[in-house]
């Protein structure tokens, strides 16, 4: 490791300065006390880093989690790397493909574009939480039946989005489905089959 006097290049301030400044600025910070301590006592930066996490309570697929995460951790990375729920996919990381779609309190969102800490206390449903006790959700069944995928990578996002699309009442026609599913890209091009699957679920009247 380099000597203490070395200044990092560019616009990035040194960690310690950052910690000192930011933690002294506001009274309602969620960053815990130890960070302040680390900054004040000029502990080694790598030690200080260990404290840069905030606590987070989340319910994922019915399981309550009490976690400690960096504020910059996205919901997507939290699911994939911390909770090993890799069914939720990273296809672009910029909200431009939909592979990371999950439900937060029942609404479909791009998990790559929100920080996990912003979801304190919320209920997250991922593809792993859609089937009930080994029985596939009707949308999952329909995707298998209509071959609504090829490589399978966009599939969890398509299915989470499709379930929401039906629940929202945006699956009234083929055209409406195509419009309201356009946030989920399938590069294999299984769109016709995905639409057929959604229509079957919608028309089948099963509870989604």
């Amino acid at each position: 490791m380099s000597s203490e006097t070395d200044k990092p290049a560019g616009h990035d301030e040194s960690r310690r300065t950052f910690l000192k400044q930011s933690s002294l600025l506001t009274a309602f910070t969620i960053v815990p006390g130890p960070v302040l301590q680390a900054a004040t006592y000029e502990l080694d930066e790598k030690v200080a880093a260990a404290f840069e996490k905030v606590s987070l309570k989340l319910e994922v697929n019915g399981v309550k989690h009490k976690l400690s995460v960096e504020p910059r951790t996205t919901l997507l990375d939290l699911l994939r790397e911390n909770l090993n729920l890799t069914g939720t996919k990273k296809g672009c990381d910029y909200g431009q493909c939909g592979a990371c779609t999950v439900h937060v309190d029942g609404q479909r969102v791009n998990s790559c574009l929100s920080f996990a800490v912003m979801h304190e206390g919320k209920k997250i449903t991922t593809i792993e939480g859609l089937a009930e006790g080994g029985k596939l959700h009707p949308m999952q069944e329909a995707f298998v039946k209509h071959d609504g995928f090829q490589c399978g990578y966009c599939t969890p996002g398509q299915i989470m989005s499709a379930v929401a699309c039906v629940r929202e009442g945006h699956a009234g026609s083929e055209t409406e489905i195509r419009e309201f599913m356009s946030g989920n890209i399938c590069r294999c091009g299984a769109y016709s089959n995905i639409v057929a699957a959604i229509q079957e679920v919608k028309n089948g009247g099963q509870k989604v």
Binding site: F18, S22, S23, I30, P71
Partner: peptide, 28 residues
């Protein structure tokens, strides 16, 4: 992405203060 501090005020006034006082703070 750089590390940042995260706060979640419950009143608009507190949010405004937090951003006003800190040159590098922003709303999300």
């Amino acid at each position: 992405m750089n590390q940042f501090q995260y706060v979640r005020p419950s009143k608009p006034q507190a949010a405004i203060e937090a951003v006003t006082k800190d040159a590098n703070a922003t709303f999300i």
